[in-house]
Design a protein around this nucleic acid. Structure first.
Lengths: 187, 187
DNA sequence: CGAAAATTTGACATGACTCAACTGGAGTGG
DNA sequence: CCACTCCAGTTGAGTCATGTCAAATTTTCG
């Protein structure tokens, strides 16, 4: 039933008390397609673990152009960490691209749980580690690959996402215009 | 004397035993300008905490072009986390841009210390968190800012670095050619 | 001082963007 | 179930940001 603890158990041993402790901190929320899990400009109250569906995290620049930072599907997290941790206004917005179910944890529970549960603390620590590595890779890509190469990398690395997400959003994620992505594809 | 624990103490309380425990895990190493702290293609044995000096972490792409990923100066860390954690070959290289002193910790000590010392574990956890946030910001910059804007952001945000590091390396960090950076500056 | 590296400058090339027009589904209401 | 609208995607012309290459100049450093 609970996808989060099932996900954690793939790498960590959980006593049933600890499992209950973790589950108690998360609330199930559902969002319809196009609904916002987080609006920019307000302080992010939650981190989200996606159970099913798909969301995009994006930022709107000074010219009003949106830039997709990441997509999150089943068993991925999303949230504006900066806002969540530092209680600052969020610069990102998060929007459901499909009808989506998430488990949400608020800041207080997050902190308590990180102190109480060693497994949870280790799990999120490793999550951050992986995020650092993944983002560094992404950065390298943007610095050293051409748009065509980035596109091919994307569709081979995330074949399911390239099916589920519209070209427009993929283009934004890759840092190019939808027109140019369309041009690339037909070659 | 020990800059690392002094740095940790800015945010965490350390008993003198715990401080000794941490210090015991780090070895002082010095590198002359242009020397390599890490070569790509080999497994990274250490994470480094820079005491003084300056290093660059970079990757060499398929065309032989180097891309600077980050600069680390006093009180910053560097290392190829991916290689260090997963014991895979490093894709990055780290080179001293000045004569540099670092504290190095190896993988075994890192793990033991993370288990033994709660403070160290929390400290590095927070380090990762900040890294995720910082890298996301950097990514957004690359997606939404023009080269000129990135350059101005860089020199206002890191005035000391823009003094200490050659234009060539700054250009690489910004994702542009040295020629174009030169062109930008004279405007 | 002299060699090597960094920076500058300029001509030219190109990857990617802008804008506008067109096409074709997907969803909606009557 | 049709007609209408509204996005997403495509196409093409013109433009701009940035790259490439090569030569000249300056700086660094042994």
């Amino acid at each position: 039933m609970n996808k989060l603890t099932r996900h954690i158990k793939k790498k960590y041993n959980l006593t049933s008390e600890e499992e209950a402790e973790i589950n108690a901190c998360f609330a199930l929320k559902t969002f319809n397609k196009k609904a916002f899990l987080l609006q920019n400009g307000i302080t992010s109250q939650y981190e989200f673990f996606v159970i099913n569906g798909c969301v995009r995290t994006f930022i709107t620049d000074l010219n009003g152009v949106e830039h997709n930072i990441m997509f999150s599907i089943e068993n991925w997290w999303c949230g504006d960490l900066q806002s969540f941790i530092n209680r600052t206004d969020s610069s990102y917005a998060i929007q459901a691209l499909e009808n989506t179910e998430v488990l949400a944890i608020n800041r207080t529970d997050w902190e308590e749980l990180s102190n109480k549960s060693e497994v949870f603390s280790n799990y999120t620590r490793e999550l951050f580690q992986s995020a650092v590595i993944a983002q560094q890779n992404r950065l390298v890509q943007n610095l050293s690959f051409t748009a065509i190469e980035r596109y091919h990398y994307f569709i081979t690395k995330f074949p399911s996402l390239s099916q589920r997400v519209s070209q427009k959003h993929i283009a934004s994620f890759l840092g190019i215009t939808p027109e140019f992505l369309s041009f690339i594809k037909n070659k």
